[in-house]
Amino acid sequence: MVNERQKMMVLIVLISVLSGIKGVYFAEFVLFCLLILFSKKIKKQSKVLILGLIFIGFSFFTLVLLNQTIFKNLIDSKGWLSAIFSLRTDYTIELLNKITVENFNVLIGVIKLDKVRLELQVVDIFLFLGILGIATYIFFLYSLYNDIIKKTYSIVFFITTICLAGLVGNLFYIPMSSILFLLTLFTLESNITNISNK
């Protein structure tokens, strides 16, 4: 019988699909793959088969999505990477070409640049805060994973979020996003057993 947690998961997946955001589809692909890999109820041979089907389904869906007119035009004019990353790679190259020793410090980040937010998480953190900022975030995430995250669902959520954050922006430097990320982790750690038993 389907429990409340499973119903909520289906609802979230459906709403996510309707969002039309490529990053969300990638996150769902990673999430499902990790859930299968971490599952103790599924045999290894079955895991390989299911993961293969998920990969084929995701690849097919991605090709269909990129075959839409808006993406086809972008692929023809700018290439595959530009279409997949919604021109973020182009903006990154453009911005990197503007960086000099006068407007950027490797340790602390940008000093004088008109545009610095590219919505590529790692690049944005480096531009805003430099190597010190990257080191601080790595230490924070390592401590969070090592000290707090123990249960399967929170591990899967954490890894999925980190993978997604590597390709898109706005997660770790927008306060509300960071708060929701932490609240979700704490909720998964504290209540997942109670929820699954309902």
Rank of each mutant, 00 (worst) to 15 (best):
E102W: 09
L95Q: 10
V64M: 12
N105Y: 07
L113T: 10
V106N: 04
I108M: 10
V110F: 09
L53P: 07
E102M: 06
L65M: 10
N97I: 08
D90G: 00
D76K: 12
V116N: 14
L63V: 06
I54T: 05
L65H: 10
E94G: 13
E94F: 10
S86D: 13
V116F: 15
V64F: 13
G109M: 07
L95S: 01
L49N: 05
V106S: 11
T89H: 06
F58C: 00
K112W: 10
T89I: 14
G79L: 03
S59Y: 04
N105K: 09
I99F: 08
W80F: 12
L63A: 09
N105S: 12
T89L: 06
V116R: 15
K78A: 09
I70E: 13
I54N: 00
A83N: 06
V64A: 09
L95M: 11
I70R: 12
T69C: 03
F61A: 04
L63T: 03
L53C: 14
L53E: 07
W80S: 02
L66K: 00
T100R: 04
I75M: 03
F85P: 02
W80Y: 13
I75K: 00
A83S: 09
N103L: 02
G79R: 07
D76S: 11
K98R: 12
S82C: 04
L74T: 11
L51M: 10
F60Y: 10
G52Y: 07
I108K: 15
K115R: 15
K98D: 06
Y91S: 08
A83V: 00
D76I: 07
F61Y: 09
R88C: 05
N97T: 06
Y91C: 05
T69A: 03
L81S: 13
L66I: 04
N97K: 13
G57W: 00
D90E: 11
T89S: 11
L96C: 06
R117Y: 15
N73I: 03
G57A: 02
L53S: 13
Q68C: 08
G52F: 06
G52A: 04
N67G: 08
N67C: 02
I84D: 06
Q68S: 12
L95A: 06
S86F: 05
L49V: 15
L51P: 01
F104H: 01
A83Y: 02
I75T: 01
F71W: 02
L107V: 09
K112D: 15
N97M: 08
G109F: 02
G52W: 01
R88D: 03
G52V: 00
L107C: 08
S77F: 01
W80I: 14
F58Q: 04
G79K: 05
F55G: 04
N105V: 05
G52Q: 07
I56R: 05
L96N: 08
L74K: 12
N103K: 03
K72H: 07
